[in-house]
Structure formats: structure tokens, C-alpha cells
Design a protein around this nucleic acid. Structure first.
Lengths: 123, 123
DNA sequence: ATTTGACTTAGAGCGCACTCCAAGGGCGAC
DNA sequence: GTCGCCCTTGGAGTGCGCTCTAAGTCAAAT
């Protein structure tokens, strides 16, 4: 699959795919006879997971670390799991925080709905 | 209250407080006789709400818009409410997305826990 | 044979949200 | 008075994560 197809299917831009490869997030994408990238199904699965890590707020540097561990082989499985577990905690507390913020937002909107429009809550 | 106290209590840096004032997020903070900022209790409440909007991912530009509407007076209450309602939708879908990502993360971690360590799921 | 268009690389540029700096002012303590 | 410290301002710098440019290669279409 060409870089454009991979971009389409992963939802990332071709620019970003090259960037990810350059910084070591994606390793050894195949090339065809004229030097163009050829993405395999496996690359797409990896990209999908990377994208999920990004969307949940993992910094690029930490994703690089994870990618590096993965390249190092199976004996790094424990460390990879621990990295993911730490990240999971981040995601959990993010969800908790957002839920709390959502409740405040609900309250604020409700205050606007009540015609009272009391200045104290509508700062 | 001095800028340092306001920084402490709001969790923002003094630099950020000045920046927020400069871009119009905070309006007309009082000054004392020597030109130093003096924050009032009301400013702190407003900062707290601003911080909540930021933490939930509202861009600065949109917060400025909200601050501007607020300054324009009560006849903008509807528009402010609509802005908050749109933002609430963003927050809701963010929570939904994160919850889904969390489930994938759980699954991945579980795969690591099972000694099998099957390559297909541990990309 | 030449044009078109997608690809390659190294490296520069951008938008966001801060974060810091330089130059100067004001005030209390010694 | 002068030292130290915190404040002021305008403007420059930073870190992150892309995003784009320039210059060149290659292959298919005309």
C-alpha cells in the first residue's frame, strides 16, 4: 500500500507518516524498486495503536520509548506492560477530571437557563 | 491580593496571569498606588472557571470570545450559554472517546499479562 | 522525448500556549 | 543612600507536534 493509501486508512497525513518514521515511531517500512514506501497490513495495525496512544495524550517521546522496547524483543514485554499501565492511570484520571468538569459545566449552563441570571454564578 | 498570591491560589504562574490579562481573558485587574496588580476574590473565581475551560480543551481564542461576550453585558447571555453548550458536547465526546481507548488499553495490558504473549496482539 | 504527477530527502516553518528576558520603577531594611 | 527584591512593560524565546518547502528521482501517459 502506498503512503497515500496508508494516510487515508490511518487518518494521518503522508507528512506525518514520514515524520513518525523519521523519529523512530515506525520502524523499517518497506520500499519498492523505486524507493517509495510500501506499507503492510501490520504497519497499519501498529499505526492504529500509536494513534490511540496519541489521542489519549501520550507524549511522542514516550511512544518512541514504547516503540524502541518493542524493537528490542520479547524480553521487554514487562517494561512495555508497565509503561501501558502507567499510561492507563493517566487516562483514568483524565476521564475522572473531565467528568467533574462536565458537572460544573452542566451547572453553569443550568444557571444560564434559569431566567434569574444571578451574577454570582454567571461571572 | 498580589500576583504571586493569585498565582498560588489559581495554580497558574504569574507569567500566565499577565499573559491572560494581555490577551483580554481577564479584564481590568485593579492596580495599587505603585502600579502593581491587585486581584480581587471575583478575579479568582473567574480564573477558576477559565482554568476549567482550558483543562477541558477549550482553545484560548474561544475563551477570549466568551470573556468578550461577558464584558458586553447581560444581553449576550444566550450566546454565552450556546457557546458553553457546544463546548459541553466536545467534552462529552472526548470522555466517550477516552473510555473507548481505555477499554482497548485494558485489553492490550491483559494480553501482556497472559504469558502467551501472542505476537498478533502485542505488536 | 517530454510532460505530468506522485514520490524521495533534509531541513525550515508554523500554531498554540505559554515562558522568559531586559530594562526600568518603587519600597522596605540596613 | 543603596541594597535587595518584587513589581512593571514590550517583546523575544521555547517545546511540542506536526506541516510544508525545495530540489531532485522515477514511471507512466501523450
Amino acid at each position: 500500500m502506498t503512503i497515500q493509501e496508508a494516510a487515508q486508512r490511518s487518518g494521518l497525513s503522508a507528512h506525518t507518516l514520514r515524520y513518525y518514521e523519521r523519529i523512530g515511531l515506525i520502524h523499517s517500512v518497506g520500499r519498492n524498486s523505486s524507493g517509495h514506501r510500501e506499507y503492510a497490513e501490520q504497519d497499519l495495525q501498529w499505526l492504529e495503536f500509536l494513534t490511540r496512544l496519541r489521542m489519549t495524550g501520550m507524549p511522542i517521546a514516550e511512544m518512541c520509548r514504547y516503540a524502541e522496547l518493542r524493537r528490542m524483543g520479547e524480553h521487554t514485554a514487562d517494561e512495555r506492560r508497565e509503561l501501558l499501565e502507567r499510561h492507563r492511570e493517566h487516562v483514568r484520571s483524565r476521564i475522572a477530571q473531565l467528568s467533574q468538569d462536565l458537572a460544573v459545566l452542566d451547572y453553569k449552563i443550568e444557571s444560564y437557563r434559569e431566567q434569574g441570571c444571578s451574577p454570582r454564578t454567571l461571572l
